[in-house]
Design a protein around this nucleic acid. Structure first.
Length: 486
RNA sequence: GGCGACAUAGCCAAGUGGUAAGGCAGCGGUCUGCAAAACCGCUAUUCCCCGGUUCAAAUCCGGGUGUCGCCUCCA
């Protein structure tokens, strides 16, 4: 079954064919660190983390490059405002980015090149563009000549004529054409600068992605990722620069754009100020909840972020997680002692092998269809239902159905593996959530059973209620009591 | 003004030609000392509206309405 990916270049879902069999080379537009990482950013990196996990799960070798634009106008202006070096700003917020991504379980890309450490590579590309007649220098600034690149506008489906007619940007008398964009920017006094053939200056906004992608992946790599807001002008310009420079196309075989995260139907963005930092949200909910929230929506649809949405995700996620925990506990229990084997357990008729197999098939079919993580989530719920059924029918391991014991192992492992592809269930084990905890809860359950058999409901309920306050829920089944952490 | 995307139940959300996944909320049932959880069942004859193509449309085409994004920094 083939993987299909929606390619912005063709506006169609296409079968994914990489340039090298078995390997996927990915370039992602990274952040400009001038403020705290917000949930909108997290959407992109969580999505691509999921893509990388899925491809790896399916046996591909994955290589991912993600730049860090650590010098730019906004960083400089913030540094001026705070009276510090621009590096202090970029380092502080880059550190925040890495920190929250780690906490979200986003695997670090293989390479995270910084613009300030690749000035020579960038200059090399600009020089090449000038040499090939695609760029020109005016008083220390270098511009890309859009007219020299016939395919300009192809990605975003705009024609040069239309754009020129409706141009909104202020006319820069140095430019030959209003749509020409700057590759190298001469620096004003007090601004960070590097030596170049055109004098002191710094790279323009778009050139770093071309230079870094070509440096680490070469031309014609597999997937280019970024927000759909970047389609024009950023990705359009990247394509123009890169293909004009190499004389080859495509620059990237597939362009994969994810939709924005909104607050009340308006885009979350730093410039609008309507953003939630990931740092703050992680103080409220565990990482898995955020990952569940993203995974339950398709990456190409705009998604609304809000407290209610997060709460719903939290409930649904805890349904998956508490079943996984209870299932693991049941298996651990079986390892410790011989369970009461009952082949006569008629109350349990689920086939967990079949459930695991069906769930896995649905998951892969969904993910193969343009990374449909919402289908993936649904497949997990489909699996959790029969696991719960089994757990309740057998008292969470107290009375096993021999035939389904292996099935439970299979189902739990499938749930954990598939959830892991979506980045779920990565929370570090609670330090006090070990064997001691298990034993203590079990002791309380035993005592409560004694109390119940003596019909001392008051005390029995007190145990149950107190545990509930600690987020431990007791569930009485016909064959014993099981417990879950919620 | 130009370009593009989207509109599915009370809510969130999959589904791009074959008869509406999943979650949250709600209702009924099983179980229970009560409960919770869990499980079972019910909850959109219908997918913004109007036309068209087709044996067949939420899915394709045309028109309309509404929302959002990009065209300026943006994940």
């Amino acid at each position: 079954m083939a993987l299909r990916v929606y390619n912005t270049l063709t506006r169609k879902k296409e079968e994914f064919v990489p340039r090298k069999p078995g390997r996927v080379d990915i370039y992602q537009c990274g952040v400009t660190p001038y403020d705290y990482t917000h949930v909108g950013h997290a959407r992109q990196y969580v999505f691509w983390d999921t893509v990388r996990r899925y491809l790896t799960y399916r046996g591909w070798e994955v290589f991912c490059v993600q730049n860090v634009t650590d010098v730019d106008d906004k960083i400089i202006s913030r540094a001026h405002k705070e009276g510090v070096e621009f590096t202090e700003i970029s380092e502080k917020y880059h550190k925040d980015f890495l920190d929250v991504m780690d906490r979200l379980g986003v695997k670090r890309p293989e390479v995270m090149p910084k613009v300030t450490e690749h000035i020579p590579e960038i200059i090399k590309v600009i020089e090449g563009l000038i040499k090939r007649g695609h760029a020109y220098e005016v008083e220390g600034d270098v511009f890309f000549d859009v007219v020299s690149f016939p395919d300009y506008g192809k990605l975003s489906r705009r024609s040069l004529d239309d754009m020129m007619a409706g141009v909104r940007i202020e006319l820069n008398p140095k430019k030959r054409n209003a749509l020409d964009f700057v590759l190298w920017k001469s620096s004003k006094p007090g601004e960070p600068s590097w030596d170049s053939p055109w004098g002191k200056g710094r790279p323009g906004w778009h050139i770093e992605c071309s230079a870094l992608a070509l440096e680490y992946l070469g031309t014609g790599f597999d997937m280019h990722g970024g927000g759909d807001e970047l389609m024009f002008p950023h990705h359009e310009n990247e394509i123009a620069q890169s293909q004009a420079y190499t004389g080859e196309k495509p620059f990237s075989r597939y362009f994969v754009h994810h939709a924005m995260l909104n607050i009340g139907d308006v885009k979350m963005s730093k410039s609008l100020g309507n953003f939630f930092s990931v740092r703050d949200v992680l103080d409220q909910v565990e990482p898995g909840v955020i990952r569940y929230f993203f995974a339950s929506r398709h990456y190409r649809s705009p998604a609304n972020y809000g407290v209610e949405e997060l709460e719903e995700a939290s409930k649904a996620y805890s349904r998956l997680k508490s079943t996984l925990d209870a299932g693991k506990r049941a298996l651990a229990e079986v390892d410790k002692k011989q369970p009461t084997v009952s082949n006569e357990n008629k109350s349990c008729r689920v086939d967990l092998f079949a459930a695991a197999r069906d769930s896995k098939r649905k998951f892969i079919e969904g993910m193969n269809d343009d990374f449909n993580t919402a289908i993936g989530i649904a497949s997990l719920h489909d699996l959790v239902r029969p696991i719960n059924d089994f757990l309740h029918a057998t008292g969470g391991g107290a009375q096993h159905d021999r035939q389904n014991l292996e099935g439970l192992k299979e189902a739990i492992s499938t749930l954990e593996t598939l959830g892991g592809v979506l980045g779920l269930f990565q929370e570090a084990e609670d330090p006090d959530d070990g064997e001691t905890m298990d034993s203590l809860v079990k002791l309380l359950i035993d005592i409560r059973d004694d109390l119940r058999s003596k019909k001392e409901w008051g005390l029995a309920d007190k145990i149950r209620n107190s545990l509930k306050e600690m987020n431990i829920v007791l569930e009485d089944t016909p064959v014993g009591t099981i417990w879950k952490k919620i």
